[in-house]
Design a binder for these strands. Structure first.
Length: 276
DNA sequence: ATGTCTGTTTCCTA
DNA sequence: GTAGGAAACAGACA
């Protein structure tokens, strides 16, 4: 489970972060014995010393997720309820949480290790595009998450439609905007647009009420299935399963898929299924 | 060897 | 308001 030479799984989007939440859950109610900072570069807005001191001897509480962010509150007692300081984790493109036994090999990409009596929780990240934040007061958690829209897994159809059409952009750009909706990344968004048969560049203003309802419904189903798998499945029935194939064909109609760029991101879509 | 590509966030300019 | 680009980062690949 640890010390791997490569990163398993897709880019950390909502389903992956939900998986990391379950990993971090193993430290729930456990006391931090020490914090090892192997690479201080992943600490954001806090230095090594303060980070270590603030968390040492605190008890990790149940982690919760908002979009692609994971929040781990701490308290002064095993079941003291959520409190601060809290750790806020973002996983960028290549981050993960791993639970390891003591004494395992430390991988060069293990950046921060939280030591507990039953094992270690490791923040692992090859590229260091994002990292770990420390919320010293309860208000700081809200501050750090203030710009985020509603979580994609919990948002209702009405708010979903309202927020998406509030902006005049291509649908893909709007879905990926974390301040509109929190949790979808490049892979999930392509998958969703394909399932709902919406062209990535269709203006959100041209989405009908039926389109919005379908997008919301497909988003729920996709996230449910992906969360169950702990990642976006690399399955042939999913568009995502064909991302890296040389001859990319639509799993639904076998049309050759098209690859374009939207907002600087590689975008995969079916010219026959997805209408503008 | 050098350049291109990958996807997330933040910041900048048009 | 929106679009586009760049930087941050490390590695795979041609």
């Amino acid at each position: 489970m640890c010390g791997r030479g490569w990163v398993v799984g897709g880019m950390p989007e909502l389903p992956d972060v939900e998986g990391f939440r379950r990993v971090a859950q193993r430290a729930g109610g456990r006391q931090v014995r020490s914090v090892r900072v192997c690479d201080a570069q992943v600490l954001r807005g806090v230095g090594s010393g303060e980070f270590q001191e603030a968390l040492r001897r605190r008890y990790f509480q149940a982690p919760w997720r908002w979009g692609k962010w994971l929040v781990i509150p701490t308290s002064g007692a095993p079941n003291g309820g959520p409190g601060t300081p809290a750790v806020l984790a973002h996983f960028g493109m290549t981050g993960s949480f791993e639970w390891c036994r003591h004494g395992g090999d430390v991988h060069p990409h293990d950046r921060v290790v939280f030591d507990f009596a039953p094992g270690e929780l490791r923040y692992h990240d090859m590229r260091k595009l994002t990292g770990l934040h420390l919320a010293r007061q309860p208000g700081e958690v809200d501050e750090l998450l203030a710009e985020l829209g509603p979580d994609a897994q919990r948002v209702g159809v009405e708010e979903f439609g309202e927020r998406l059409t509030r902006t005049r952009r291509g649908t893909k750009a709007a879905l990926m905007d974390q301040s509109v909706l929190a949790g979808l990344g490049n892979i999930c968004t392509d998958e969703l647009l394909w399932r709902a048969r919406v062209h990535p560049n269709r203006a959100t203003t041209k989405l009908s009420a039926d389109d919005l309802e379908l997008l919301h419904q497909e988003m729920r189903v996709m996230l449910r299935d992906a969360v169950r798998a702990g990642r976006v499945p690399d399955d042939a029935s999913w568009l995502t399963g064909h991302r890296d194939e040389p001859d990319q064909r639509c799993p639904r109609c076998s049309t050759a898929l098209r690859r374009t760029r939207v907002g600087g991101r590689g975008t995969l879509w079916c010219p026959a299924c997805q209408s503008d």
